[in-house]
Design a protein around this nucleic acid. Structure first.
Lengths: 271, 271
DNA sequence: AGTTGACCCTGACGCTAGGTCATAGTTGAC
DNA sequence: GTCAACTATGACCTAGCGTCAGGGTCAACT
């Protein structure tokens, strides 16, 4: 019997047989005068056993121990431990594959509907992409990108609460609020270009408008409370300086945030 | 931001970041005077997007296309085709893992019960192993090994019908029939050492005893009918000469088989 | 001032389970 | 004789990094 017939009998290839020879899993048979390997039926049996184990997920390095006839106690308990480890590895892998399947399916749905592929829900990602494309001013589009990136990073971290997404969906996707939201963002981005010390009045106005815009202030409070927790919980160690390197811009953002927090705490009793 | 902080932020390792640099997935950032890479927050966003896709099962080679902003029609349809292929690959992998899980679980059960690990059902494999160990004559043990190997090869081929296994279970595992079965095999192996031309009488006697032994002759007929089909169906191209290289031994087996077939066809009308 | 420990750099090999050449000799059928 | 199909060996390739080897940098503590 030659190597091709052996391989055919076991449903594999000559390359694989030679591989097993080199690993010592299958003994090298006698050679014919022309150098060809000459196999017997017992090689077929051995090879099929190896293939069966390999197909069952046993790594080739453990096959020899399982196929060996000697059943010393320690060898057997080694085999049992190996099998247990393999089974839990398979379970881990199954969980991973299940996650992949759902994610890939939603990515495919996104792509088929012409939406961008993103870790964010399709409606939010699409609305943000549209807004970025349609923004007249490049600064507005930059602010929107920053918002989108931050939100997506939080979503990837698996730490973005449902309420935040719902709030975003309402503020950006909903046609009614959308225009006002974008106008606010435009003003905000406009403000970031200004000298923070000569823009006190505008900062005050913008903060009031933002507070007025968010009808559900509790949600805004949740947002501010959740973001740092979510970020650090996911191992994200980003400071505002990382996100906004420019000193003046950062100062404006800090002042607006401060005013917002003041405004929220003032009306806290109301909610 | 240095490479370790970047990697931590994305929940990965510096080695992975450098790997992505070499693949061109992540632009090389500016270097500090000491040669260290200096990252910004947009690198964090990019890296986390890459990790999210990779975790979702997208191969790194396809990540760039998915993350690229340009959405030309052909690029998008390429992406859709890739995603479809990935999803079906995941499904194939899930089926494979499910098979592995059941197989590994039954192997673990075998090992825990002290049974040999085999593609055969545990009771049959254990009974055959016991019989092989306890056989007084080495020839008997050799015949039993041959039987076991053949049966296991057929089981691995996935082509051994349930009835055959049930028959074996009855003949070998069942305590009542077991002794008679083993005695028959011992006589058979004894016969194989004889000159076929001077053993006509013994062949006749053995054949009659075999026929008498198998109460369910239809099952025996199934066995003989199924084995060649199963073997060729599984790509097994083994002739009797491969299994029994010795001419005289093979001749004895052929004569016994011939007598068995005659005996079966005689009583065919009865079943 | 020295030392320790935690980073960073590049380059190279290792892992699984074989696939895929490249090069060369052999067999078997027409 | 010729051609396809087989066999031999050896070497490189895959994916996604892990892990060393060998060396430089930096901040803190003694």
């Amino acid at each position: 019997m030659r190597i091709g017939q052996l391989a055919d009998a076991a449903g594999t290839t000559p390359r694989t047989v030679r591989h097993y020879h080199r690993l010592g899993l299958l003994d090298e048979p006698q050679r014919l005068p022309n150098g060809y390997r000459e196999y017997t039926v017992s090689d077929v049996v051995r090879l099929m056993r190896i293939r069966w184990l390999a197909d069952s997920g046993v790594p080739l390095g453990s096959v020899a121990a399982i196929l060996s006839e000697d059943v010393s106690d320690e060898a057997e308990s080694d085999v049992i431990a190996d099998l247990r480890a393999l089974i839990s590895a398979v379970q881990v892998e199954q969980a991973k594959l299940a996650r992949r399947h759902t994610r890939l399916a939603s990515m495919l749905a996104d792509a088929e509907n012409g939406n961008p592929i993103s870790a964010l829900p399709a409606d939010i990602a699409a609305a943000l992409a549209d807004a970025i494309d349609c923004a007249q001013l490049p600064e507005v589009s930059a602010v929107l990108r920053r918002e989108r990136d931050l939100l997506e990073v939080l979503a990837i971290s698996g730490a973005v609460p449902e309420e935040i997404l719902a709030w975003y969906a309402a503020a950006i996707v909903d046609d009614d609020q959308r225009e006002r939201s974008l106008a606010l963002l435009a003003d905000w981005s406009d403000l970031e270009g200004r000298n923070p010390h000569s823009a006190e009045a505008e900062i005050e106005v913008l903060s009031r408008r933002l507070l007025a815009h968010f009808e559900h202030q509790q949600t805004l409070a949740d947002l501010h409370a959740a973001v740092p927790t979510a970020a650090t919980g996911a191992g994200l160690a980003l400071s505002l300086e990382d996100v906004i390197p420019d000193d003046a811009q950062r100062e404006v953002v800090l002042r607006v945030q401060r005013r917002l927090l003041e405004g929220m705490s003032e009306s806290e009793g109301v909610c």
